[in-house]
Write a protein that binds this DNA or RNA. Structure first.
Lengths: 110, 110
DNA sequence: TAAGACTTGTCATTATTTGACAAATTTAAA
DNA sequence: TTTAAATTTGTCAAATAATGACAAGTCTTA
């Protein structure tokens, strides 16, 4: 795994956009998105729609898998934040995810 | 923290219901919910609506805070599972949650 | 085999998210 | 400053997702 950003996904997009010297309008057009809405996304007032990840990856020549990791960790991080989930509880959540995986496995074998 | 269940929230409700020898119909009535939908909840085909946690706590004489922990860890566990988030990525997600907390703090002071 | 318990499917209703556009406000160059 | 581009904010209709309700099915078990 390459190092992931300790920022929100919106801030990450802004970073990419600035590095590539694009305006909101220019990037929004490439993403087939309204520039006003892209502004809200960068400012954390809306979520980036997952279906646009492939486009975003192409525009900035990023690996889709890494971009998706960036996205997923942002989403779960947001979930953790919004529910005030402590580290301790997060461990429980991870165990429960593991439990769901075993449930799914046993379903497969039937 | 008392020990939390390594089950889904639906399975946990079913456990509570069976311990207390209630039928789906009986518990559903207490929760002001359709028994068919409660069945789906117990079987993981629908989510339990968070707004009913206080009722659920009263019915089974549980502490709301602990029940909420059970609920939150289930929801985040589900999120982790559904996004195939690895332990490694989960650490990143936790860092991002932490980052959001600092963002929020600095917002407060302004 | 009948009654109660539970499950599944469907659909209208409700809530949430997204897209779109107008109208600010901010920024920065002239 | 003034002005044009860039960005932000507000609003609302449309799309999407979640929930409630009910009918009809299957599964126990007495």
């Amino acid at each position: 795994m390459t190092s992931l950003m300790k920022t929100t996904f919106g801030e990450y997009i802004r970073l990419l956009r600035n590095e590539n010297e694009l305006t909101l309008t220019q990037l929004a057009a490439k993403l087939d998105l309204d520039s006003a809405n892209l502004s809200k996304i960068e400012n954390g007032k809306r979520d980036f729609d997952e279906k646009r990840l492939p486009k975003l990856a192409r525009i900035f020549k990023l690996k889709l898998t890494e971009l998706r990791d960036e996205y997923v960790t942002d989403q779960i991080g947001k979930h953790i934040y919004e529910t005030n989930c402590t580290k301790q509880l997060l461990e429980v959540a991870e165990e429960k995810a593991e439990y769901r995986r075993t449930l799914n496995k046993s379903l497969q074998t039937q």
